[in-house]
Design a protein around this nucleic acid. Sequence first.
DNA 1: ATGGCTTCCGTAAACGTTTACGATTTCATA
DNA 2: TATGAAATCGTAAACGTTTACGGAAGCCAT
Lengths: 344, 344
Amino acid sequence: MSIRDLARHLNISIGTVSRALNGKSDVNPETRERVLQAAKELGYVPNQSGRSLRQGTTNTIGFMIESSIETADNGGSFFMPVFEGVQSVFRRHQLDLVALLCGTDEDPGAYLNRIVGRRFVDGLIISATMRNDPRITFLLERKIPFVTLGRSATGGQYPWIDLDFEGVAATAVTRLLKFGHQRIAIGVPASDINLGYVFVDGYRRALSAHGISFDPDLVFRANSNEEGGYRVATAMLAQKQMPTAVILVNENMAIGLYRRFYEAGIHPGRDIAVVGFRESTQSRFLSPTLTCFRISLRDLGIKLAEALLSTMPAFASNYPQDSIDLVWPMELVPGESDGPWLGT
Amino acid sequence: MSIRDLARHLNISIGTVSRALNGKSDVNPETRERVLQAAKELGYVPNQSGRSLRQGTTNTIGFMIESSIETADNGGSFFMPVFEGVQSVFRRHQLDLVALLCGTDEDPGAYLNRIVGRRFVDGLIISATMRNDPRITFLLERKIPFVTLGRSATGGQYPWIDLDFEGVAATAVTRLLKFGHQRIAIGVPASDINLGYVFVDGYRRALSAHGISFDPDLVFRANSNEEGGYRVATAMLAQKQMPTAVILVNENMAIGLYRRFYEAGIHPGRDIAVVGFRESTQSRFLSPTLTCFRISLRDLGIKLAEALLSTMPAFASNYPQDSIDLVWPMELVPGESDGPWLGT
DNA sequence: ATGGCTTCCGTAAACGTTTACGATTTCATA
DNA sequence: TATGAAATCGTAAACGTTTACGGAAGCCAT
């Protein structure tokens, strides 16, 4: 069922059929109607390869999602809603979105090189941005439109959207200080993901804004999952003077942390304050419910899509450049996991 | 950087270049070496559109992942490891795997029709199979190779792999009966996903095998997330005679269930037995830790890939047909959430 | 010297689209 | 009526690749 078959069936040329289907102006409205009708009846859908070959564009966007061991167990709850949002925008432009999950046993650079080299996608969304991310320099020199979810220390001119980790750190720190806490710890990912650096920076700045000196012993690095949270709690318990509060960069860590404290007979929310990130269905149903930060992942996805489109020549006219380099604000949702310090 | 440029640069014809790159036999080893060398130096990667157009094959497989509201929050933890496994097999055959997430505001049938019509993929993996799934009949009549994760009541000849829900139900029921429980409830998804039907069937059969009559009031339907678990617990509490044990089809439900019981002052593992499904990082760190079933999702993914390849003419020779229609066994992992019935 | 292999390589068609260009018709206007 | 513009459509080239086919060269045996 090619366009040629369709043309033969209608007794008109394939050029006219193509123009009719693509909404070009120089075609008789009546003919167009006949073509569209026949296309629907015969179930004709244009072959993407032929179209791509001719126009040099694939009408697909790739969303590269990290699937490392660390994030494999919880990444989905984050990415799925974002993906939803991105897709809702692309659908309006007949763009198909595909998720590209680079396997753990393949080098992300090589993977990206293959995808880009094959002209598989017209643009890319890059997530889990590293502090120094070779993917960014690669895409820049290949002039592939892209946007990153998460800023990076890598140089160059490209749009990025990131969560407001400084804001989160500042809000959490001030809140906990107001509650009377003095030793406030944080739990951040052990990997080289840039998120960790930004978070620690924000934490540091927030502390110094209140005249409190930074204590490196209060920064706990671990995997961003339940096991990591468990380890953080264990490390906290081992300190001569245990922190009275802790800020976690990942809500999955909270479960492991809760568990470790439960084993030690320590009640989060009473004996120790916990602030998590980010709000999810989970955080509302933990006991105690987690104080954390709310964010509309779907809206984030929408902004991501718009930022990408603004860098693509074919769509840039509809999307002004001002939607790029965005720091996404988040709102604190109080839970039962923190409160006034009752200790000595 | 097309094959033509490469040929010009080497002063040989494009036909020879193509043959050299594709490992055809009728090319001088020395020439082949030169071609491969030049391709690497100049960073040549064959254009996928051109290749697809010519061979009628795209070298990509689609993994259609459900992203409905219900599963958006937890689907990732399940699919990511499966995806990993699938990808590890496809990589060996130079096949690229892409995740296709059908947005919630688009009809899955229409989405699939577009993907297939465009000749976007050579094969498909379908998940979240419905009891009556129009996608299956569609793919069958279009003769697109596919495999489903989850069996279906839809007729036709196609490979599927499913988890052993009967086994899970039987094991859980016998275990709980041995513990002295009499009123054993189950929590299953409210949607039309076939998984729910199979699970209830297994539960029913397991009960009757022990001479216990089936009580429809013990089947609780809810969303497969934390909120659903909360609702299930609420419904259980409302019954005149509360069940003494409950089997959940989703471990995320356990969190919500725990929460509701916590609010009611009831301790899972002591006052009520909970058996969950499936084991995850979470289930090991909940308090109490969840008795549940273990499964290697990566291995599951590998089998899925093999089943699909066995139906694709180009690969079938390497993959015998016996790997299809598989019921995946699972192993129980005891936790703290169930035990002997201590009630009256 | 001729014929027949084998080895290697070039030529050209084909895949399904889109689109620049030109051809034809229609129609109003001079 | 002649003319030009507008509307509509057909023709053919082009995108990058693979591959069937044939040709050229080399070699060996007759």
